[in-house]
Every structure is written in C-alpha cells, then in structure tokens.
Design a protein around this nucleic acid. Structure first.
Length: 748
DNA sequence: ATAGGGTTAG
C-alpha cells in the first residue's frame, strides 16, 4: 500500500515536472527568461529534463554563462545535457568552448558530431569541419553530411559541396535543399534552376529557396511566377514573397498579398508591419500593430524602431512603456533611439539599468560613444564586455579612425583574432580619412595576401576617399583592381568611380566609366552631372540632363544641385533661374538650403546682389553658412558693403569661430577705407577667439602628394614648384584686376 | 517534453 502510494506520488510529481518543463521551454522561446527562471527555482521536483531545458533556455537568451554554471552544478548529466551545452555555445558562436566540451564528454552520438561540425562551418573553418566529418562513426546519419554541404555552399564553394553531396551514402531531401540553398543564396539562379528541375522530390522548402533566390537577385517576376506554382505554400512562402515585393517598393502589392494570406502567423504580421516601417509609413504600421491578434517582441520592437526612424522618440518611449515584457532587443532599440538623438548620457543610464546585456546591446552603446568621439568611454565598455563579436572590434577600429587616432585603431585591428572584410574596410577607410594613403594601399595588398577579397564597400569607400582627396593615382590603381576583381558591374562601385574621376578633374574618364556601366541609375547620372558642374562643363551637364530625361530617369534634389552649380560655375544666371523654377513647378521638388545656396552664388557672381538677397528673404528653409558665405563673397567682389555686412553678421552667428568670415568683412572695410570698422571687426574676432585654419591644398604629382599651405615659408617648397607658382601668379596678375584678386595671392 | 542539418519577420 505504502509502496503503491509512493509510486503514485512520484508519478504525479513527474507529470507536474513534465508540464513545468514545457512551460520553461515555451517561455524561453518567447524570450521571457526571467519567468522561466522563476518557475525553475519554484519547482520542487526537478528532473534531468528540467535542467537540460533550463540550460537551453539560458543559452539561447544571452545567458550563456549562467547556462554553463547550471551545467557545472548538475550532479548527474546525460548525453542530452552535454549536447545542449554544446548547442548553447553554437548559438553564441563560441566554438572554442564547444570544442573543449566535445573533447571531454564521456560519450558522443550523432547529435554531438553534427553540432560540432556546424560550429566550425559557422565560423568559416571548413577544413576543421571536414576533418571532423571524416571521423564521424555513423556514416549513414545525414545531419553531419548536410551540415558540411551547407557550410561549403554558403561560402560559395559549390564544387566542394557537390563532392560531399555525391560522396554521401544516403541522401535525404535536406541534402538536396542544402545544395540548392548554396546556389540561391549566392545569386547563381541559373544553376539553382537547373538543380531544382533535376530534383525528383521537392518540398515547400525547396520552392521557398527558389523564390527567395529570385527575390535576392532582383528578378521579381520569376519569383512571382514560381511562387504561384508552389503546390502548398506555407507561411514562409507567403512572407518571402511579401518581403520581395516590399524590397522593390511595391508596398500596395505587398499589402494585397498580406490580405490574401490564408493563415497569418506572427511572422506574417511582423513582416507587413516592417514593410510599412521601412517605407516610413509608421501610422499604417501602428494601425496593423493594434489589430494583430498576438504580438511578440519583434512586433513591439519594430514599432519602437519605426517611431525612432521618423524621429518620434517620445512615441517610441510610450510604446516601450506599454510593452508587457521588455526584452533585451526592445531595450536596445530604445537605447539606440536615445543615442541617435544625441542623448548619449540618458542612453548610458538606460544601459546601466539593463540587467542582462547581450552583444548587440554592448555594441550599440560602444558605437554611441564612438560616434560622439568619446573614445575613452567606448574603450572602457569594450574592455568590460564579456563576449565580443566582430562588430565590437570593428566599431572600435572605426571609432578611433574617426577620432584621428590611427595608432589605436591599428592596435585594435592587430589584436583581433578573426578579422573579417568589415574589419579590413574599417581600417582602410580609417587610413584614407586620415590622409594615410600609403598605409591604406599597403593594407589593401595585405588583405589580398591573407586571402580576403575586397568587396564593393572596400572599393566604394576607398574611391570616395580618393575623390575627396583628389588622389587620382590611387584612384587609377583602384580602377584597374576593380576591373580585375569583377566588381565593375556593381553600381555602388561604378558610381563611386564616376565621382572619383569627376572630382579629380578627369571628366573623360568619368564619361568612359559611365558608358561602361551596363545599367546606370539615378546616382550614376547625378555623379556625372555634378562632375560636369564641378569642372565647368555647363553644356555637357545640360545635355546629360536631357538624355537622362529621355531615358525616363526622374531627377531628384541632388540632380538639381548639380544643374544649378553647373550654371553658377559658367555664369549662366538666367538659365539657372529657369532650372530652379522648373525644379519646383515641373518636378514638384521643394528647394533645400543647398539649392538656394547655388542660386545666391549664381546671382551673386554676376553682380545681381539685390535679387540674390530677395531670394534669401523669400525662402522657407533656414539659410545655412554656405549660402551666407556665397553672398558675402559676392558682395566683396561687387563692393556692396552694406549687404556684405549683413551676410557677415549672419555668418558670425552660425560659425562664430571661423576667422575667415571676420577677415573678409574687415578686408571689405579696409578696401573702402573705413579703418574704425576694420578695427571693430578685428576686436570682435579676437573676442570670439576665432582661429584661422590655414588655407590648404594639395595635388598629386608622380605618386607624391604635394601640400600647399597659405603663408608657408617658400623655402620649404621644392624649387621647381616655387617657380611654377610664381609663373602662375604672373599669369593671374596679367589677367585680373589685382585688387579683386588679392585673396587669391595669399597662397603665393 | 530537453540536443543537430535546409526557407520567413526586428
């Protein structure tokens, strides 16, 4: 009797534990770790599964250290406990820790081997994964083989993937899909289609892969055709197609699809909300958010981010406050919102109050400090964070680079164990930002030696640095490199090349690149037009504008900045005015301060100062320093002291520490013989402690950068350069009215 | 009920 009762009570306790274990797992999936932990501690009858489940939940919710602690505390472990812990490390990208456990575990099964192989493939250590695959005792278990195929396929090593695929004794559908994923994820849709059609058996995952592949490669109509043929589309199929439409701006079509979905899950709702957020239609997003039956943390976070993206921080905070269970993602979202609005100290307070930071949260705070130039605080956090990922390291590298501390950036870079493309890009961009071309180029070469191929952003950032520095020689070398590495068809790279050549004064090369690009976009046109403008080719700019219109490319704000500045550089005031009018009336573009700035420059140069000033008075946007600077310059040339003084005073408000504004005004007074005024402005300048940044320019001659500082001692210059400068000065004196050009001679 | 391999949302 007693025994029976005992057994029954154990049975009931077991049932109890069973239910609690399930609860723990479910809460873990919802990200509610704290609640899961509470249940765990309140359980009187914990069994082995309870511990295993708790370890899994902790590991998957950024509490990997707690997970390990619990694992170590267990008096009895089974194989699942070991596998769960290894899976936890896999989830947190901690391969070394996983490998240590794998080495000491008492026995291994197929799960253990597959886990470890996946660990290595995720880190890109394919040789290591391959070694392990050879050692797997059970050759018929497909998971290990499949993990290996996926590893090769994701890296684009199709031949290796295919070899493993053909070698494996028993294939299942996942093996086929892993191969297929390799093709679709790497944009090889031709191969993908071939493989897909050769498959005798397909499931919805195979179809979904194809649709996603077409979406990714920009072939929306093929994606749609395939989507419509899917025998039993599931939620993933619908969401993939929806996001495909959203990606190409077809918001209304995406909504239509959403309304047609037979069964919507949370992900479907979240995808639609994210689509509206991405399109900055936050009100629409909120409407759906309020309607959706079950909100999860992604739904809440999307709305919070949506409000932040449109600058409504208060609304974001309200939503956050209403959120029932604030997980780390939501906390980080709001914290980033504070950072983006420059409220970094509030963000830091919030950071301190967060209990369990994950890597993303640490990284966001570090990025916040780093972007505001507070590198000491960034470093402090970086040192404190328990687990760093590549983003953490890269943030520090670009932070130091922006702060002009390339020695520190290099130190961080060298201390990094696994450098990725972004690390190299950050370092190279840093060198370029700090005018260290040679170091940048050396890094580019070193990067190649270490087996890392530069990507489009390597080229885009190096080219834009070359453009800003007019470093033509480096730009040319990059161009050759780009041609060799096959990135010429990338629009980012192509457009950066156009801009580089244009800014280096090589209009013909810019045109050549423009012609070589297979399918130009608006940015390509804008780069070309700005290039013409910059180099004084107004007629070419006009022609390009006509041609782009005939090809049905619709100009934007930037196009018109280019067009107006083309007119301005060529002294074509009336055409400029016409274009300005056309922009507003025919293209419904609201002029920005930059457009007005061009207009003022345009009118000011030809002496139409009254009109320039009336333009400024009539404008709706706030005038910027560039605009007042143009007006002041024009007033000096055309000797309008009264208006010049007005413009100068606005400039003193906007940039009180910029000495050149004070100097221009004081020179104007001097030229008019008003010596008391000269003294007054000089006093004002001293009062504001305005410092003069010496005028600086440089050109590249035979791979050497030659710097020129205004008023630098002539003896520091090479003799031949000084001779050229003197000759130039003589030419200028010959052509111009000396008193007007006085400032131009400052450099000589 | 807890651990592995292929597809979707922040």
């Amino acid at each position: 009797m007693k025994l029976k009762l005992g057994i029954r009570s154990i049975g009931e306790a077991g049932k109890h534990a069973f239910n609690h274990n399930r609860q723990i797992i479910q809460l873990g999936k919802l990200g509610k770790v704290e609640e899961a932990i509470r249940i765990f501690f309140n359980m009187t009858h914990k069994n082995l599964v309870t511990y295993n489940s708790m370890i899994s939940v902790l590991a998957k919710n950024a509490r990997i250290r707690d997970a390990r602690q619990l694992f170590d505390q267990m008096s009895l472990r089974n194989l699942v406990s070991w596998n769960t812990m290894i899976a936890g490390y896999l989830h947190n990208n901690m391969v070394e820790e996983a490998s240590e456990l794998f080495d000491v575990m008492p026995e291994r099964d197929n799960f253990s081997w597959a886990l470890m192989i996946t660990c290595y493939t995720r880190k890109g250590k394919l040789e290591k994964a391959r070694e392990l695959l050879e050692l797997v005792p059970d050759k018929l278990d497909t998971a290990c083989w499949n993990a290996m195929i996926a590893g090769y396929a994701k890296k684009g090593q199709f031949n290796d993937a295919k070899k493993v695929f053909e070698q494996m004794p028993a294939k299942d559908l996942v093996s086929y899909n892993s191969m297929l994923a390799g093709y679709t994820q790497n944009g090889k849709m031709h191969l993908a289609l071939q493989f897909f059609e050769s498959m005798t058996e397909r499931n919805v995952v195979s179809w979904n892969l194809m649709v996603a592949g077409y979406v990714k490669s920009g072939d929306l109509s093929s994606a749609w055709q395939l989507f419509e043929k899917i025998p039993n589309p599931n939620a993933v199929s619908w969401v993939t197609m929806l996001c495909g439409l959203a990606k190409y701006g077809k918001i209304a079509e995406a909504r239509e699809l959403f309304d047609r979905m037979p069964s919507k899950n949370v992900v479907s709702w979240n995808a639609m909300i994210a689509t509206y957020v991405q399109d900055l239609q936050v009100d629409e997003a909120v409407k759906l958010f309020k309607k959706m039956p079950h909100k999860d943390s992604v739904s809440w976070t999307t709305i919070i981010n949506g409000y932040i993206r449109v600058g409504k921080l208060d609304e974001a905070r309200q939503v956050y406050n209403q959120m029932p269970c604030k997980d780390i993602t939501a906390q980080t979202a709001l914290m980033s919102g504070l950072i983006q609005n420059g409220r970094i100290d509030e963000a830091d307070q919030m950071f301190s109050r967060i209990g369990a930071h994950d890597v993303v949260c640490w990284n966001s705070m570090i990025a916040g400090y780093s972007r505001s130039g507070r590198m000491d605080e960034a470093l402090n956090l970086f040192r404190q964070m328990p687990i760093k990922n590549s983003v953490s390291w890269n943030t520090m590298i670009s932070g130091y680079a922006q702060a002009g501390q390339m020695d520190r950036a290099t130190e961080i870079f060298q201390a990094m164990r696994e450098k990725n493309i972004v690390s190299w890009n950050s370092l190279i961009a840093g060198f370029l930002q700090n005018n260290l071309y040679l170091d940048a180029l050396k890094s580019l070469v070193m990067m190649g030696k270490e087996g890392k191929k530069p990507d489009q952003s390597t080229f885009a950032c190096t080219l834009s640095a070359c453009a800003n520095l007019a470093a033509l020689q480096v730009g040319n070398q990059l161009h050759e490199y780009i041609l060799k590495s096959g990135y010429m068809n990338d629009l980012f790279v192509g457009n950066a090349l156009i801009a580089m050549y244009a800014k280096c004064g090589r209009v013909q090369s810019a045109e050549q690149v423009f012609r070589d690009i297979e399918c130009v976009d608006l940015i390509s046109w804008n780069s070309l037009i700005s290039g013409y403008a910059l180099n004084g080719y107004a007629n070419k700019a006009f022609k390009a504008f006509e041609q782009m219109s005939s090809e049905r490319v619709v100009p934007d704000e930037v196009t018109f900045i280019g067009m107006l500045s083309a007119c301005s550089h060529a002294g074509l005031a009336n055409q400029g005015l016409d274009i300005f009018k056309c922009m507003i009336e025919d293209f419904a573009i609201e002029p920005l301060a930059e457009h007005y700035s061009c207009l003022v420059d345009l009118l000011g140069r030809v002496g139409r100062l009254e009109e320039a000033f009336n333009t400024v008075r009539g404008m709706k946007v706030k005038a910027n320093a560039g605009l007042w600077g143009s007006l002041l310059g024009a007033c000096r040339v055309h000797k309008n002291l009264e208006l010049g003084r007005f413009a100068a005073e606005r400039l003193f408000e906007l940039e009180p520490h910029n000495a050149s504004n004070y100097i221009t005004l004081s020179n104007m007074h001097a030229e008019a013989g008003r010596w008391e005024e000269v003294e007054r402005v000089r006093m004002l300048m001293r009062g504001k402690r305005a410092g003069k940044q010496p005028g600086c320019s440089w050109i590249e001659v035979q791979n050497q950068i030659q710097h020129f500082l205004s008023h630098d001692p002539a003896k520091l210059r090479p003799k031949n350069i000084q001779i050229i400068l003197n000759t130039l000065a003589a030419h200028m004196r010959d052509k111009c009215n000396t008193s007007d050009m006085k400032s131009a001679f400052d450099i000589l």
